[in-house]
Amino acid sequence: MEQVIVCNGLTKRFGDFTAVDSITFEVNKGEIFGFLGANGAGKTTAMRMLCGLSTPSSGKATIAGFDVYKQTEQIKKNIGYMSQKFSLYDDLTVQENITFFAGIYGISDAEIKKNGDDLLLRLGMQDQAKKMVSSLPLGWKQKLAFSTAVIHKPKIVFLDEPTGGVDPVTRRQFWELIYEAADNGITIFVTTHYMDEAEYCKRVSIMVDGKVAALDTPSNLKEQFGANTMDEVFYHLAREAKRGE
């Protein structure tokens, strides 16, 4: 099995404070990897290091085979990113947003056209192509944001709480998109606060106080902690946290 994310003792310190404390894990190609943790556990810092935005203090990590210290440019070309803000431009049309996000990855015009049309077709949004993003319902914005995050066909896509503030039905539909992307070989690295979503992941890691406190499939984790739901597993681990928010 090809491993697209390999972390070994990855650490980030800010002065005396160790935000991420020697985390070690691997993520396989096409896997949906849940990255859980309470607020302040160090999720965001870890994710920033993996995206090449922040240089680690120590440890090793490769993303899609590229080193996080030296090859950040290569990493950036091979990853996609989406945050809970959906990060689209409200004053541009659907089509313009697609063209722009594909454009900054240096994709050729012909390919932008083809990928964009495919995307609209898949989302059933051909009729909305010329509409302003501001006029779209939230669920559609979210799907569009995800689709633009993978328009350059990255190897890995990082989703930072992608379903924050969205109703359960829309969340469910969104996860269908995620499964589809994973089936196409894109690795999904997702953070979330919803434990039902954790169940959708193939494997889940739970961070507590900057360390990876648990890492396994949801069913194994439940067994290991004698819990019925992921919610109980998370609560069991998170309440031992010493760090506040």
Partner: peptide
């Protein structure tokens, strides 16, 4: 504010 800056920073741009 819109969070698009994050996307831009993560991109190779």
């Amino acid at each position: 504010e819109n969070g698009t800056m994050e996307i831009l920073l993560v991109s190779p741009f």
